[in-house]
Structure formats: C-alpha cells, structure tokens
Amino acid sequence: MNFSPQIVAELLPALLRGTVVTLYATAAGMAVALVVGLLIAIARRGSNPVAVLIIDSFVTVVRSTPLLIQLYLLFYVLPLYGPSFSPLFTGILGLGLHYSSYISEVFRAGIDAVPRGQWEACIALQFSRVKTWTRIVLPQAFRIVLPQIGNYLISMYKHASLLATITVVELLGAALNFAGETFRYFEAFTLVGIIYFVIGFAFSRLVRYLEQRTTYGRA
C-alpha cells in the first residue's frame, strides 16, 4: 500500500485544526471536571446523610455507565426537554461530568491525606471554615493529587475522540470526514494515530516526571 505524500499534505491542515479542537475540549472538560469534582468532594464531607447518599449515587451512576451513552443523552435527549447547546459545548459538558466522578474520588483521597493535625491547628488558630479550606487544606491536597489529575487529563484527551460521534469535528472527526470523502483511510487513520501518540506520549512523560518529583520531594 502506498502512503501518498500528496494526500498527507491535503489532510494535515484539517487534522491540525482537529487537534486544536481536541486539546480545547480536553482543557475545558478538565476545567469542568475539576470544579464539579471539587464541589462533590467537599459536599461529601457534609453531615447530611441524605445529601451524601445522593452525591454518592450520582458519582456511582456517572462512573459506571459509558461516556458514549452519556453523550447521546446530552446530545439527543436533553434538547427535547430544555436547553440546546452546540455539539462542542455538549461534548465538553459530557467529558467534564463523566470525569468529575473520577476527579471527586481523587480529591477525596487527597483531602483525606492532609494530616488531621492541620485541621486541628486551624481550629486552634481560629481560622474560619472557608479560610481553613482555601488557605490550608486545599493547597496541600492539590499538591498531593496533581500527578493523578495529570493521568486523568491524558485519559480525557484520548476519550475526547468520542466527541466525533456527536458531530464535533475534532481530531478523529476530521479524519473520518476526510476518509469518508476520499476513502484514504490508511493515511487518515495513520496520521491521526501518530498525532495522538506524539501528544499523548509527551503528556505521559510529563506526568511521570511530576510523579517522581512529588514522591522524591516528600522523602
């Protein structure tokens, strides 16, 4: 089979535009996941058992069903009852909510890892609840969970390819469009694979570096 450079030249601009969309969706999705995940982690520590049960159920349900179905629900079903968003926005929302279920667990573990003495010191120093969280607990928890969030960022970056199924022209979508018109599946998918790999590999090395730095830093 021949790998035509001409085809590559035609294809590359579209794929690069798609890459930008993928990276944008990943970054925005992670922002949603971080905010929602953090809110869940904090709310779970509340004393109202009914609220905790509801939150736990939400996390379990979101976590144990496929992102693809969640995207279909957001894209095909939700607009029938209310707001209708752009495909990209819907995709970011779906990615963010799906990953918030993972991120909330990460935050929970991170917050639990902050020593009890830190909370007690805050009480002894008359810190307000908000100050305790924002000045003392969360900064320490963030540092603990950073490598894990990095891992989920990589995971989300790969998962963002699912947005192609709700008509977002991200990296995979761009390749599918091109291949659908030209039948050059080989070039299209090989290039997509290479782009995914290069960025994913670079990301994962960065996270590994972070992991090593934090473990050594604590020793």
Binding site: M1, K158, L162, Y185, F189, G200
Partner: peptide, 22 residues
C-alpha cells in the same frame, strides 16, 4: 506505549478500516 498513548476509539477504527486494506 502505542496502545496506552492513543485513543481506543482510534485504535478500533484503525483495525476496522485499515486492516482490510492490507
């Protein structure tokens, strides 16, 4: 490294569309 650093959906499409070509 290849299978962990690329999207599983892309892998699925690759095998589905490209394998028959070879």
């Amino acid at each position: 490294e290849v299978f962990r650093n690329t999207s599983s959906l892309v892998q699925i499409f690759y095998f589905f569309f490209v394998l028959p070509l070879i």
